[in-house]
């Protein structure tokens, strides 16, 4: 525990800009205005530990990303440069390594709904992907009970296809059997509330409708551990209520839910524990009210 203070001072120190972790998120080299008055941070235990059976254990996890095409203008795509590089047996300059998650450890339990907050590029999405087993750790390990699933079925859907076809495709992509697809189909349509639009290509949907359908599809399957990344950001208020209910239902079914959202209200209403990630490290972990209050201040 002696290193705790050291660790915290490291977090506070200005580090080189952390690049986007999933290609979309742009680095936000905002000066990290971390207030010095947070000695209690990482030492706050969660207030209610639901059942005491761990479902996800993250043990000193480090994730290093390789990003292509991040070269500066000077070294980009020049044929002469490329040739010298090959002759000197150097790697491509476009390839940069991003240390997105730096030594994160925590234990999640049955019935936990854990919100993950942090600035853009703080490693939230990367952490979720690592828990889902989709990104190999550089060092450390993620141990899970059952197969955690990322609520990320959108990658399998095709905009040119009708909602109908996409529901079937999405269900199969999540590993359902034909019988399950048949059984869940109507439920998905009803839950998403897109009605007759289901016959139209998804490219004609409004962004809210698309988000609703995606959430409906991906939450149709029972998950032991469900990882949600910004899924609730869109959609109207009524739909947000419905999705919150569904998350609660998943929790009750003895699952564990991880939720990444920028809308702190959603996290406050659905989660019983919040992890604050800052530049790839856990800055605070504990009761939603306390962590969010500190996060809002910082």
């Amino acid at each position: 525990m002696a290193e705790l203070t050291e660790e915290l001072s490291l977090v506070k120190a200005e580090e080189p800009a952390v690049a986007g972790t999933d290609g979309k998120a742009k680095p936000q080299p905002k000066p990290a205005a971390v207030s010095a008055a947070q000695p209690k941070t990482a030492a706050t235990p969660p207030l209610d530990v639901p059942t005491g059976t761990p479902t996800v254990i993250v043990d000193d996890l480090h994730i290093i990303y390789r990003v292509y095409g991040a070269a500066s203008d000077a070294e980009k795509g020049n044929a002469v440069n490329a040739l010298t590089r090959i002759l000197r047996r150097q790697g491509r300059p476009q390839m940069k390594e991003v240390h997105a998650v730096k030594g994160v450890s925590f234990v999640a339990y049955h019935g936990d709904a854990i919100g993950i907050v942090g600035r853009n590029g703080s490693g939230k999405s990367t952490l979720l992907r690592a828990i889902a087993g989709l990104l190999p750790p550089h060092s450390g390990a993620v141990y899970t009970d059952g197969q955690p699933s990322l609520l990320g079925v959108n990658a399998a859907l095709m905009r040119e296809l009708t909602g109908e076809r996409n529901i079937v495709l999405g269900c199969y992509a999540m590993g359902m059997t034909p019988a399950e697809v048949k059984e869940k189909y109507q439920e998905i349509v009803d839950f998403s509330g897109i009605d007759e639009f289901v016959q139209l290509p998804m490219s004609t949907y409004s962004s809210g409708m698309g988000a609703r359908l995606r959430f409906a599809i991906s939450s149709a399957k029972t998950h032991d551990v469900l990882l949600i990344d910004e899924a609730l950001a869109t959609g109207d208020r009524e739909f947000r209520k419905k999705s919150e209910q569904r998350i609660r239902k998943i929790r009750e079914e003895a699952g564990t839910v991880f939720l990444v959202a920028h809308d702190l209200r959603v996290i406050e209403e659905t989660c019983n524990r919040v992890i604050w990630l800052h530049k790839g490290k856990i800055k605070m972990d504990g009761d939603p009210k306390e962590v969010l209050a500190a996060y809002n201040k910082g």
Partner: peptide, 27 residues
């Protein structure tokens, strides 16, 4: 890692020193 220690403490105070890998194996 301080976080590990925290996590272990959360895990019901099982000695506080149990490595997470062992905890994972136990469950």
């Amino acid at each position: 890692q301080p976080e590990s220690a925290v996590a272990d403490a959360q895990a019901g105070g099982r000695g506080g020193q149990e490595p997470l890998a062992k905890l994972a194996a136990r469950y």
